[in-house]
Design a protein around this nucleic acid. Sequence first.
DNA 1: GTCTATATAATGATAGAC
DNA 2: GTCTATCATTATATAGAC
Lengths: 188, 188
Amino acid sequence: MPLKKLNRDEVVAALFKVFRTYGYDGSSLAMISSEVGLQKASLYHLFPGGKEEMATEVLKTVIEGLEHDLLSPLRGPGSPESRLRGMIRAVSVFYDGGRLSCLFDTLSLGRPDNPFRLAIATGVNAWIDALAGLARETGATRAVARQRGEHALVTIQGALVVARCLNDPKAFARGLLRLPGMLLLGDE
Amino acid sequence: MPLKKLNRDEVVAALFKVFRTYGYDGSSLAMISSEVGLQKASLYHLFPGGKEEMATEVLKTVIEGLEHDLLSPLRGPGSPESRLRGMIRAVSVFYDGGRLSCLFDTLSLGRPDNPFRLAIATGVNAWIDALAGLARETGATRAVARQRGEHALVTIQGALVVARCLNDPKAFARGLLRLPGMLLLGDE
DNA sequence: GTCTATATAATGATAGAC
DNA sequence: GTCTATCATTATATAGAC
């Protein structure tokens, strides 16, 4: 008898949790099978391309979620302040207050031509653009706004890494506190 | 006949290159053997504890190098400006202008109780402290200086991740440009 | 659609010659 | 101190029953 009945979204969510924590090479099919709650053969039924297809689909889903949950609200409507507050709140939830790693970080390891780098670059670029749009509304030139957007994402990613290295999620929260000044006031 | 004659430092340097690029699980002994230029059995002669001992020794060596090449000069002598400039130059070399990843990032993947996390936390903490010392000299309180030091390291680490994700080392260089304002002027 | 069982390749690690 | 050859284990992936 089947152990569970899972729809594809639930499986992808479980895969996401594994890949963002252990990276691609660190995630074995045995561990994936255990975390997802499906036997390996069942995973291959869902993803004939194997582990690489699993990671590719997780990445695609995460980028769609990023666009829908973070970037789209960031573009409006509402005041720049409230939209940024909304993104910060969503980011905090997305990374469980700094306890979870970024899939872009963990899947970008290895050779520059690894199978995930292109999609990751597209996602990161869209994120920076959306943040830059916010800075642009405060009167920054296009070039300065792009720099501020980049620095905002640098702060998010760096705060995640430092929080993980220190085993201190609060370092992530402190990083998020700097974003409004960075994007809305034009502070360095 | 032996293929090469390598001293331990050269072997550790080659191991460092592999682990910082592929992470722990992504670095197979076959790849390590090829990159180092020694057969697996020879590696086990040098590191009886196997792959974990290799990574542990690399981490230890990197932290010593961090202390010697970056943190010690950061503490003086010289003006705060020149000392910071020196660290930024050394950091740029250390990460090959943003083309190489940070070992702290790649070895901190996985469970919070992985064998490298404690040493990594110690190293990261020392780095933040040294940066905070610089901020302290500009008149910041102890607490504010620590926050600025943390933000400086967040910027370094985040810029490395973003540069890797975008496949654009210049993003790392742009991050480094923000450090002086952050630490010496007290800008956000 | 999920399972058990298995095939095949790669992995970390050892034994022992030189 | 490095090598060739091999081990036991784990890895990814498949076959086929239900």
